[in-house]
Design a protein around this nucleic acid. Structure first.
Lengths: 355, 355
DNA sequence: TTGTAAGCGTTATCAA
DNA sequence: TTGATAACGCTTACAA
């Protein structure tokens, strides 16, 4: 007896001037109950072939699309993944974003994007927003999300209590948190070793972030030098705050460093843009690359091919990492047992900025 | 009398092992009706200060967050904007994405990202997805969405029947479709004129897309030459399909062109990456930039500063365009009368690749 | 200013 | 295999 309902809909139809059809309309047109329509919609096996076809025909005929909000309310999910991204315009993250979205969509999950910038507060809010929207899972893109002080990571633990969290290229141990990463330490170490093994004595290490991966990379640099029997010269390790990362600035700071008497015959960086800055420095200082100065970047992003000479860089397998993030998330959502940590191995891509 | 409801919740509590609080729990704890709680939640003015404070205290105390799905169902909106993006890893679009998301979030709208790649079919599906999720508005990013054949734009018209559509840097006339763009034709014309006015005679024009903006830019190039009393040499206009846009490829094709006898003393492109390719070509051909060859790119993206020499490029005011897209969308959603077309004027940013 | 109750469009339970 | 109906958690007339 859904006469009442029908009347409702008719009145709404008149008022709103033709809003979308609902399940009652379809059930009526097909001469079945809404329960049956719902079953057809959800591919329930308990529907006769004949009924199913009849209902599908009506649905098709009317271009009926079930209301996603009502569905969400009933199922408590809208098949959505929240992507927390510090900066969608960053090439590395933009690539990751593209890979993630594509892979999730393939599996019928939509992506809610939340760019958080740097502050811990913004991240908190982002997570709250995603939780309030009942996303099925959250991906934290990049290791900026993992803070050195444990209490600053409470927001991750809290989120994970309710929703599975996958970390893209970051590491954090906690229940319901899954990490897919590239072994930045090892890859960085191998890059530094390559510089040493091609005769470089004083490798300037430039880094832009002190977060988890930033530290791992630095550790790789140190261990490489030690592995070759050298001693780390702390003067050769330089931090460039994120705001000072633009190319002309890096160039100028390197010029100043040289001016101040610092001697180096190679520059290795935690980010490709910094390496571009090093190339600019070489030019300004009249040094030939790689003859007078070797340069190695990190991320193996497209810009490595833009500079002159093209830059040798550490490839951290972003596509593989991104796609594994999606696979892990899907596995967790399907209730399968998933590894909490998956590590890919990076690779040094040699171009013209090294010997 | 919501004893019944309470009972329900209790049973669910037992079954699910502690799901989130709902409006009934809050109303009970605060000793008011759910209507009052709802009013407080929605900032209704018809609540006494005292009651409001009492309710807010409870809400705060319990960390209560209203269920977004139920809210969506009642209000028929979840304050969400759908962003259709051909490729989130493209630097231009990644920047736009970042600007859009930031501005929408500032106004409490969340963004659902849908990367469509090239095919018309994928776009259709993307739109359908966004419609089915009842997004409040759709932003189509870039002019790839507007097809030359009018019938291929039916998907835009259809979407606009239900949801306001804003086009970022593209133009299409249709009710409920709003365009915010940069005058690419004029900016390109001025760039070409600059080359002519600095003595260049044969300007090779490289473009990568035949879409709306692609055509506008080309038209600008043509009109510049005519404006200086010249005749357009069709041999100097070259299309590089999107797949062949990588730097080494562009370089090689230009080398082949030179080899074939084509004479040109400047290269102007529809995209900065192509200009990088031209720089690489100059180096390979032993030409000095800008002395032997002037080069102008388009978009004024970060990579212009990465190459050697740095590249002169057309700035198409992406940030302003993006933020105006958001402003326009918000205006439409608030029911204000909004202009269907807003045009920003580009600007030539001169660097070292031109005289 | 507050409360009651209908309504949003689904899904899921239970009975037939 | 089907149908009737409660439930999901909220908003919002309408009454009081």
């Amino acid at each position: 007896m859904y006469n009442h309902k029908r009347f409702k809909n008719v009145s709404i139809y008149i008022l709103k001037g033709g809003s979308a059809l609902n399940i009652y309309d379809i059930s009526e047109k097909a001469g079945v109950s809404i329960a049956t329509v719902s079953r057809v919609l959800n591919n329930s096996p308990h529907v006769s072939q004949k009924t199913r076809e009849k209902v599908l025909a009506v649905i098709d005929d009317c271009d009926y699309v079930p209301n996603a909000f009502a569905r969400g309310l009933g199922l408590n999910t809208m098949k959505t993944i929240g992507l927390l991204c510090p900066d969608a315009s960053d090439p590395y993250l933009a690539n990751a974003l593209s890979f993630l979205e594509k892979a999730f969509r393939k599996h019928h999950y939509d992506c809610l994007l939340c760019c958080t910038e740097r502050s811990l507060d913004a991240r908190q809010q982002g997570i709250e927003m995603l939780k309030s929207r009942h996303v099925d899972g959250i991906v934290l893109m990049g290791s900026t999300f993992v803070e050195a002080r444990e209490r600053d990571n409470a927001y991750i633990r809290n989120a994970a209590k309710q929703i599975p969290v996958v970390l893209l290229n970051a590491s954090y141990s906690c229940e319901n948190v899954y990490c897919v990463m590239s072994d930045e330490q090892r890859a960085t170490m191998e890059a530094t070793q390559y510089l040493l093994d091609t005769g470089r004595k004083n490798i300037l290490y430039l880094y832009h972030s002190k977060n988890y991966n930033g530290q791992k990379k630095l550790a790789g640099y140190r261990s490489a030098i030690e592995s070759r029997g050298g001693a780390v010269n702390e003067d050769l390790i330089r931090f460039f705050s994120d705001e000072k990362t633009d190319v002309p600035n890096v160039r100028d700071q390197l010029l100043a460093l040289k001016e101040s008497g610092l001697v180096f015959d190679a520059v290795q960086t935690s980010e490709d843009v910094l390496a571009i800055g090093a190339v600019k420095y070489a030019k300004a200082a009249g040094l030939s690359v790689p003859h007078d100065l070797s340069i190695i970047g990190h991320n193996n992003s497209g810009i490595c091919q833009y500079s002159e000479p093209e830059i040798t860089s550490v490839d951290n397998k972003l596509q593989a990492v991104s796609e594994q993030c999606v696979a892990t998330m899907l596995g967790v959502l399907e209730g399968r047992e998933m590894p909490q940590k998956i590590v890919f191995t990076g690779e040094l891509i040699k171009r013209d900025s090294t010997l």
